[in-house]
């Protein structure tokens, strides 16, 4: 017969857990709202920037810009990987790790030739444990003060690409489609590639024309920053949404477990009562 006291203790502990997961769900919900708002504010800017860069890449004839340099032999590849700082958010990070390791394995390069630039504690821990070379580790993926993470990241990746430390650069992060749908996605950033054949070969006039290289570099540098920024924001919103779902599930499971335990507690109690009555009746009968 299960011990009444031990079941009662179990119920108490599951109840506590349920309370915690419930609170975490609430917190994640509030944070998600905020994150969504910030993300939605920034998204049109990022989208327009992307379009503009797309136009420029397809139109421009300035092929001597370092960002367009397609290397003949791809020796080193860089990956920017954006994860969350904290756990308890369901399969959010695991999905990103899986996508990233799949892509890295497909390239058939040694670990030494893979350069990782990581935002988010969880990612840093995971890839360190698996022996990858981490060139940059921001230790946080949350945009706190004036986008310092994206600043640092964009600077170091552009430098590494121009100096030839990496021949290609990809960014892997979780894209946010809806509170219940986030998917990891990999996007190539460097070198810039034409998406269509030159239909419109008309070149741009760049002003001020005395230093057009500088103008382009500044625009492209800003673009990398904006791309990283929007992904950081999306990742943050996705993390909160994922955590909310995970905590919702946990709360529901705890409820189910409590019901089950209560049932077995009542059963055990009933058995004990019946046994006691039997004892009494037997005792009374014996006295007759």
């Amino acid at each position: 017969m299960p011990n009444l006291k031990s079941i009662k203790r179990k119920i108490g502990s599951v109840k506590n857990t349920r309370q915690i997961t419930k609170a975490m769900k609430m917190v994640a919900g509030a944070k998600l709202k905020k994150a969504q708002l910030v993300m939605n504010e920034f998204k049109p800017y990022a989208l327009t920037y992307e379009q503009v860069i797309g136009n420029m890449i397809n139109n421009i004839l300035l092929r001597n810009n370092p960002f367009f340099q397609i290397r003949e032999k791809i020796n080193n590849i860089g990956f920017i990987i954006i994860t969350s700082d904290r756990g308890l958010c369901g399969a959010f990070n695991v999905n990103i790790f899986k996508e990233a390791t799949d892509i890295i394995k497909k390239r058939n390069l040694g670990n030494g030739n893979i350069n990782l630039y990581i935002a988010g504690k969880k990612g840093a821990d995971f890839f360190k444990r698996h022996g990858y070379q981490i060139n940059f580790n921001s230790n946080t993926s949350v945009k706190k003060e004036e986008s310092s993470v994206a600043d640092g990241l964009s600077k170091i990746v552009t430098e590494d690409f121009i100096n030839g430390k990496i021949d290609e650069l990809y960014i892997i992060s979780s894209r946010y489609f809806s509170p219940i749908n986030q998917k990891p996605e990999c996007k190539k950033i460097f070198p810039f590639e034409k998406t269509t054949e030159n239909v419109n070969v008309e070149d741009y006039v760049i002003e001020p024309d005395s230093n057009d290289e500088e103008v382009l570099s500044k625009i492209f540098n800003d673009y990398i920053k904006v791309e990283i920024d929007v992904r950081l924001l999306e990742s943050n919103a996705g993390e909160q949404a994922s955590r909310m779902n995970a905590m919702d599930n946990a709360t529901r499971n705890a409820g189910k477990l409590i019901n089950k335990l209560t049932l077995s507690y009542n059963k055990a109690r009933q058995t004990a009562v019946t046994l006691e009555i039997l004892d009494l009746v037997n005792g009374a009968n014996a006295l007759k």
Binding site: E202, I206, E207, P208, V215, L216
Partner: peptide, 15 residues
């Protein structure tokens, strides 16, 4: 300087 744009303007980029 101030730039006026009408349809058919040449492609350009500027700060």
């Amino acid at each position: 300087g101030i730039e006026g744009i009408l349809p058919g303007h040449i492609n350009f980029i500027s700060f």
